[in-house]
Amino acid sequence: MSIGVYYFGAVSLILIGLYAVLVKKNLLKILVGLSIMETGVNLLLISIGYIAGRSAPILSEGVGPNNAVDPIPQALVLTAIVIGVATTALALTVAINLYETYKTLNIEELRRLRG
């Protein structure tokens, strides 16, 4: 399978996430959209380091630097995933706070209640 498939998948995930963030009215759906976007970005990063036919960048028997994929994007993605989890967790706690105050998660209602 060519690398183009991964790029296409990554960009579509980012766009789907962006669509959800911009269009959906429910706060939780917006947060899900953000997570989808982050996944898309991570997939893009991974595919940039991918070299066809090579194995995971773990030095072991028969796997030298010349037949492993680029390890740096994988390290980056690991960091990005951790950051994404932290952001999502924080966003959910804020959403809980909002729900307890206004008893709704619809962003239009929220705007109206605040006046």
Binding site: I14, V21, I30, E38, G40, T87, A91, V94, L98, L110
Partner: peptide, 18 residues
Amino acid sequence: EASEGAMKYIVLGGIGSS
């Protein structure tokens, strides 16, 4: 108000960081 301001910041910040 604080939760709402933070939520706006989180959503925009999330898009920006992506």
